[in-house]
Write a protein that binds this DNA or RNA. Structure first.
Lengths: 340, 340
DNA sequence: CTGAAAGCGCTAACAC
DNA sequence: GTGTTAGCGCTTTCAG
């Protein structure tokens, strides 16, 4: 059998083989309109024989749809190592999980410099993707407005730094802070401190605010705070500082599990027992919470569900472009384990 | 100022405004061929004024290039939660890091069922991406041959289950196993056990083989093995089994850090000290190695560098399709910390 | 060095 | 219910 080098088959080829017009083939491929069952059969055979696959570029040139969305991670100052943060892994999991059911694929983009931010906007303006899912933490992030200005359908994970008509999903971070405070109070802590996330991150501010407010309402007007950077190392350092200034501390709220883990380490190194001497509450309920010894009592953020919702909101707004912005706020939940 | 609703500008619009032909505009946009400097200036202004951005679909319809590649994660049985595994985060980081310098974007795909595998091939055949980066662990994975059969430029992370003409990057896993054995022997362990990864994963087999061979060469003809699944929980369970059957064990090699972490937990729970009573060596040198207490002595796999290389190989083979398959094997390295 | 013209492969009115 | 006919916006010979 002689094999011939043949170009990939097109609609035209299928149509010719099936003895019908391109339009008809297109119709059966896309399942649009009614097509005579017999013809459908013929066409399907022809498709089978030729090994035809529709060309994506040609299709999206006319439909103006690509079937992909950009998943933009606007890392802090960090580069690609954000992907090592369990948080982003969970976001990705949630997004992929939802999108795959709709045949939509996420393209991963990092926006950590002005240059890459411009690239993202460019990418979307070129129509390389139908919309953007933006996971940003920094309040000052400029991407939301740029995307909005470019008319790109966008959904944010976390509310925008400045109010603007854009859809987003978010967690009630303040409620989360309150949950942590309640736990520490319930445990009878008399001297509590907090390890916050970067304070230019809205979520960090909110968690801290909620925590402080609840503590204040419980008779603790002042809570010492050490700022961390959402990494274990920064939590370690922050706990160290807290310990120096307030050696009497017997309760700590860390704004994420990674930092809580770092804090627990320091405590243990100092011969303090957790939770007997110092109770520690984390935030997120991601992998480190379980890996940590003792396992972390933490405020659960349903990241996967939130990410999936974000994707869902984008897909629906792609279907109905006139739709007004939507916001969905999730409630945190206290998960009690061993550390507090 | 009255704002008009205007369609996004096309080459045509720019050409008209600049008083030149579309071809000329195309040339300056793409920097192909020489164009009169004055005209270039004019054209650039026109582009500026119109806010023109080339349409991706139209361009790739003719160039047959998309500027994206598929990053396919062929998860074990698992679904989207593979993204929580630090290994994939590192792969992603390495890939993104390299690709961004070349203006190429990865689209994330999960291939965990036959259906999704077909989708992946379909996606590539449609020309939705220029090539595939396949991260697969299972030896029986069918995607490599399917992709090869479809003529899709592909690079694998890990050698294929069956020999075939495809490019890949890999680690010398056996050497890694030997490194671990050498450490345990050096420490004077007299009864060692191993926690392997899933045995249908080539890397697991190789790590174990290398470990066993080296142990045998050092006078240990038999090494008890408990099979795990690369998760902390499975490592925990495996260590438990090992301990029941061989309570005298004083050295353990776990085929990845997550399992090593689980193993350490069990050991500690049983009142055994690490490394004094039992030495533990992990594999990968990923985040859990550092988070673990004691910190893990482990065999380093340079995942990010390997992933970057994988992307590089793909990009070069995209540029020269005639190029023969390439393989790049990385060497592991022992990282000594506290656990062994 | 620049313009004219021919498609890339597909969908979507619009007739029949 | 099916075919005809325009394009979608761009690159690229091929002349000039």
């Amino acid at each position: 059998m002689v094999k011939r080098i043949m170009a990939t088959p097109t609609l035209e080829d299928v149509a010719r083989l099936a003895g019908v017009s391109r339009a008809t083939v297109s119709r059966v491929v896309n399942g649009t309109r009614n097509v005579d069952p017999d013809l459908q059969e013929t066409v399907r055979n022809a498709i089978e024989q030729t090994g035809y696959t529709p060309n994506h570029a040609a299709r999206s040139l006319v439909t103006r749809r690509t079937g992909t969305v950009a998943l933009v991670i606007s890392g802090a100052g960090g580069g690609s190592d954000v992907f090592v943060d369990p948080f982003f892994g969970r976001v990705t999991a949630g997004v992929v999980d939802f999108l795959r059911t709709r045949g939509v694929h996420p393209v991963l983009m990092l926006a950590d410099t002005d240059r890459t931010r411009v690239d993202v906007v460019e990418f979307l303006r070129q129509g390389s993707a139908d919309g953007a899912l933006l996971v940003t933490t920094h309040a000052a992030e400029s991407l939301p407005e740029r995307l909005l200005a470019a008319g790109v359908p966008t959904v944010l994970y976390a509310r925008p730094g400045r109010p603007m008509p854009v859809s987003y999903v978010d967690l009630d971070h303040q409620a989360g802070g309150r949950l942590a405070a309640a736990r520490l109070v319930e445990l009878g802590c008399t001297s509590v401190g907090a390890i916050s996330g970067p304070l230019d991150v809205l979520a960090s501010q909110d968690r801290l605010t909620g925590f402080r407010d609840a503590m204040a309402r419980n008779g603790f007007p002042y809570v010492p705070v050490a700022e961390g950077g959402f990494t274990a190392a920064s939590g370690h350092a922050a706990m160290g500082r807290l310990l120096v200034e307030h050696p009497e501390v017997d309760g700590v709220f860390a704004a994420n599990d990674l930092m809580a883990q770092g804090a627990v380490d320091v405590l243990l190194e100092h011969g303090l027992r957790v939770p007997q001497d110092v109770a520690v509450v984390g935030f997120d309920d991601s992998a480190p919470a379980l890996a940590c010894r003792p396992q972390l009592t933490t405020v659960r953020q349903p990241v996967e569900a939130m990410a999936a919702k974000m994707a869902e909101v984008l897909i629906t707004s792609l279907e109905d472009p006139e739709q007004r912005p939507i916001s969905v706020i999730f409630e945190p939940e206290l998960v009690i384990r061993a550390s507090a």
